[in-house]
Amino acid sequence: SEEEIREAFRVFDKDGNGYISAADLRHVMTNLGEKLTDEEVDEMIREADIDGDGQVNYEDFVQMMTA
Results as ranks from 00 to 15, higher is better:
Ser1Leu: 11
Ser1Arg: 13
Ser1Gly: 07
Ser1Val: 08
Ser1Trp: 14
Ser1Ala: 08
Glu2Leu: 14
Glu2His: 10
Glu2Tyr: 11
Glu2Gly: 06
Glu2Ser: 08
Glu3Trp: 13
Glu3Pro: 05
Glu3Gln: 13
Glu3Tyr: 08
Glu3Lys: 09
Glu4Gln: 12
Glu4Ser: 08
Glu4Gly: 07
Glu4Thr: 10
Ile5Glu: 00
Ile5Ser: 01
Ile5Phe: 07
Ile5Gln: 01
Arg6Thr: 03
Arg6Trp: 06
Arg6Leu: 13
Glu7His: 06
Glu7Cys: 07
Glu7Gly: 06
Glu7Tyr: 03
Glu7Asp: 11
Ala8Glu: 04
Ala8His: 09
Ala8Asp: 01
Ala8Ser: 05
Ala8Tyr: 06
Phe9Cys: 11
Phe9Ile: 04
Arg10Met: 10
Arg10Gln: 10
Arg10Gly: 06
Val11Ser: 10
Phe12Arg: 03
Phe12Met: 08
Asp13Met: 01
Asp13Glu: 02
Lys14Trp: 09
Asp15Trp: 06
Asp15Glu: 13
Asp15Arg: 03
Asp15Gln: 10
Asp15His: 06
Gly16Ser: 05
Gly16Val: 02
Gly16Asn: 09
Gly16Asp: 06
Asn17Cys: 05
Asn17Arg: 08
Asn17Val: 06
Asn17Ser: 10
Asn17Met: 08
Gly18Asp: 01
Tyr19Ala: 03
Tyr19Lys: 14
Tyr19Asn: 03
Ile20Arg: 00
Ile20Gly: 00
Ile20Phe: 01
Ser21Gln: 06
Ser21Asn: 09
Ala22Tyr: 10
Ala22Gln: 09
Ala22Asp: 04
Ala22Arg: 11
Ala23Ile: 07
Asp24Asn: 07
Asp24Ala: 07
Asp24Leu: 05
Asp24Gly: 02
Leu25Thr: 02
Leu25Ile: 12
Leu25Asn: 00
Arg26Asp: 01
Arg26Thr: 04
Val28Tyr: 02
Val28Gly: 03
Met29Leu: 15
Met29His: 01
Met29Cys: 03
Met29Gln: 01
Met29Asp: 00
Thr30Met: 14
Thr30Glu: 13
Thr30Asp: 11
Thr30Gly: 10
Asn31Tyr: 14
Asn31Gly: 09
Asn31Thr: 13
Leu32Ile: 09
Gly33Phe: 15
Glu34Asn: 14
Glu34Cys: 15
Glu34Gly: 14
Lys35Arg: 13
Lys35Gln: 09
Leu36Thr: 03
Thr37Met: 05
Thr37Asp: 05
Thr37Ser: 12
Thr37Tyr: 05
Asp38Gly: 07
Asp38Asn: 10
Asp38Trp: 11
Asp38Ser: 12
Glu39Ile: 08
Glu39Phe: 13
Glu39Lys: 12
Glu40Arg: 12
Glu40Tyr: 08
Glu40Thr: 07
Val41Tyr: 13
Val41Glu: 02
Val41Gln: 03
Val41Asp: 01
Asp42Tyr: 09
Asp42Leu: 12
Asp42Ala: 12
Asp42Gly: 07
Glu43Val: 11
Glu43Gln: 14
Glu43Lys: 15
Glu43Met: 14
Glu43Pro: 02
Glu43Phe: 14
Glu43Gly: 11
Glu43Ala: 15
Met44Val: 04
Met44Tyr: 06
Met44Arg: 05
Met44Pro: 00
Ile45Thr: 04
Ile45Ser: 02
Ile45Gly: 01
Ile45Cys: 04
Arg46Ser: 07
Glu47Pro: 03
Ala48His: 11
Ala48Ile: 12
Ala48Thr: 06
Ala48Gln: 07
Ala48Tyr: 10
Ala48Asn: 07
Asp49Met: 13
Asp49Tyr: 09
Asp49Asn: 14
Asp49Leu: 10
Ile50Ser: 08
Ile50Met: 12
Asp51Gly: 11
Asp51Phe: 09
Asp51Ser: 13
Asp51Met: 11
Asp51Val: 08
Gly52Arg: 12
Gly52Ser: 13
Gly52Trp: 09
Gly52Tyr: 10
Gly52Met: 09
Asp53Ser: 13
Asp53Tyr: 12
Asp53Leu: 12
Gly54Ser: 05
Gly54Ile: 03
Gly54Val: 04
Gln55Ser: 08
Val56Asn: 00
Val56Cys: 03
Asn57Pro: 10
Tyr58Val: 13
Tyr58Asn: 00
Tyr58Ile: 15
Tyr58Gln: 02
Tyr58Pro: 00
Tyr58Arg: 01
Glu59Gln: 05
Glu59Ile: 07
Asp60Trp: 15
Asp60Met: 15
Asp60Phe: 15
Asp60Ile: 15
Asp60Thr: 14
Phe61Thr: 01
Val62Ile: 15
Val62Met: 10
Val62Glu: 02
Val62Tyr: 06
Gln63Glu: 06
Gln63Asn: 11
Met64Gln: 09
Met64Arg: 15
Met65Gln: 02
Met65Gly: 02
Met65Val: 07
Met65Asp: 01
Met65His: 04
Met65Ile: 11
Thr66Trp: 03
Thr66Met: 14
Ala67Arg: 14
Ala67Gln: 14
Ala67Asp: 11
Ala67Ser: 14
